[in-house]
Amino acid sequence: MKWGSLLLLLMLAWPALAIESYDFSTADGERRYNQMVRELRCPTCQNQAISDSDAPLAADLRREVHRMIEEGYSDDYILEFMVNRYGDFVHYRPPFTSQTWILWFGPLVLLVLGALAVLRIARNRHITPVEVKAQQQELPSALSPQEQARLQALLKSAPQETQQETKS
């Protein structure tokens, strides 16, 4: 029973053992470390930050980040250290370069294009009934003369009544 509970405790502790803990001389260093390891991407595991991965390489990179923070290097220096070795891939926020501008502005460009298209369509749809009538009169009619006469009669009777109502 005693051994059983000990085993259970060990099993509970296992996930905590997967990622090592570091001691920091300053609270600020610890905060910077925690931020840094979330922003650096693990090169072997593709879509994990080095804080999330238990790959040996991610552990090495965490060790290096810890070492450099303790030695007093700035965040920019650490980032440059990583990019110089692993390329831009290692950073979750891609820098703005001639190769990455499309990543930064692509969505904005698409949004503007979409908005323009919507605006155009909306404007074309916004046609008053008078304009429709005018358009219809310009178009060659597919109706026979009799039908045309009847249509005109109908159009005259109904709307004119309402117009008179509004006038009075």
């Binding site: 090169p43 072997t44 040996p56 390489l57 090495d60 990179l61 290096e64 070795r85 390329g87």
Partner: peptide, 12 residues
């Protein structure tokens, strides 16, 4: 300890 590997950017 993989320090040179790290400087080389070895990831696998």
């Amino acid at each position: 300890d993989g320090r040179l590997g790290l400087d080389l950017g070895v990831y696998g």
